[in-house]
Computed example of a mutant assay.
Amino acid sequence: VFTNSRTLPCPPRHLLVLTSPSGAAIRDVLAVLKARWPLARVTLIGVPVQGREAASALIAALGLLNRQSTLDPERDAVLITRGGGSLEDLWAFNDEHLARAIFHSRLPVMSAVGHEIDTTLADLAADMRAPTPSAAAEMLVPDSHELAQRLVGLERRLSRGIQVRLDGESQHLDHLRSRLRHPGEALGRQRHLLRELEVRLCRAAQARLTNERQLLQHRQQRLGACHPRRELVHAAERLDRARQRLQHTMPRTLANQRERLAGLARQLHAISPLAVLGRGYAILENEAGQVIQRAPDVEPGQALTARLGEGHLDLKVIRVIKPSSTQGAS
């Protein structure tokens, strides 16, 4: 019950306050919200905060809020608060049912009950605790004046950054302008380079063509000296001999492999659990598919499955007879 730690939205889109409409707590909360975040949308749900009816009223109001589909746990929040008082005045916030309702709340809950020294079960079950109602309002919303100052500072930093960037780009532009040359000069250099590359390409192509011709003549001479007809005759002879050896050894090899495969099949069948089942035995399994090996592993009324040699049976345990006693458990 005391493990909630969700982060409350800051500021919440809609703040729902559960407290007494006439108490000092709501006045403190509204005063702080007005000073720090005037845009806050606050809804007061008036409930008694002490007495016998306080806990049930808080639980009912919290349940009503959690049933509102328009409220979003990511953007809305609930504040349960009241001012200080004696232990008897705060006792409604020590109600177990209220603590469980806060723990199971769909909306995040902040609790601010009493003063800083007061701690209730509602504080422990809430997602966040504040020492006082005023402190809760300060924790729920940012300070608009501080945000305005931060925005002014960021605006100044942005202006300085833009000016620095503009100055840098201006200097870079001036540098590029100084390096800029007439395109005719670049075209002239490229034209000269193109002529040189053309001459080099013609020379390289001529040399490559000469080398290929010489290589072709050399290979033609080798091919004439080593005609493939002789190699084809020898290859045909080797192929015939290999075919004869294959025809001679293949039947024997196939027979040996068949005998070996039959022996392996007999061995596999001998150790197979299905062969044991075929001799009249059965395997009991629970609903999770685990094999039952001992009677104490099951309870009366538990459903089991018996695997047979052919098919299976759905069983239900009527009685468990343990090995140490003759009387079954019922």
Score class of each variant (00 low, 15 high):
313 L>C: 04
5 S>Q: 13
219 R>W: 12
155 E>S: 12
168 G>N: 10
16 L>E: 10
295 A>K: 04
290 Q>G: 08
60 A>T: 15
116 E>L: 07
106 R>S: 01
35 A>W: 10
311 G>T: 01
167 D>H: 09
20 S>P: 07
272 S>M: 04
278 G>M: 10
165 R>Y: 04
97 H>N: 06
166 L>R: 15
5 S>V: 13
225 A>V: 08
136 A>S: 06
167 D>C: 08
130 A>T: 08
79 L>Q: 03
325 S>V: 13
252 R>T: 14
28 D>R: 05
101 A>E: 07
316 K>P: 04
299 E>A: 11
260 R>K: 02
297 D>W: 15
29 V>H: 00
151 L>Y: 05
19 T>V: 00
98 L>Y: 06
143 D>R: 07
274 L>D: 14
88 E>C: 08
115 H>Q: 13
275 A>N: 15
79 L>E: 01
250 M>H: 12
33 L>G: 01
276 V>S: 14
40 A>M: 02
147 L>P: 08
202 C>D: 13
270 A>V: 02
224 G>L: 05
38 P>L: 12
253 T>V: 14
165 R>E: 13
299 E>R: 15
109 V>G: 00
270 A>P: 13
96 E>C: 00
182 H>C: 03
6 R>L: 01
244 Q>S: 10
1 V>W: 07
154 L>P: 11
53 E>L: 06
231 E>R: 10
159 S>P: 07
152 V>R: 09
198 E>Q: 08
35 A>G: 12
128 M>S: 02
143 D>F: 10
108 P>E: 13
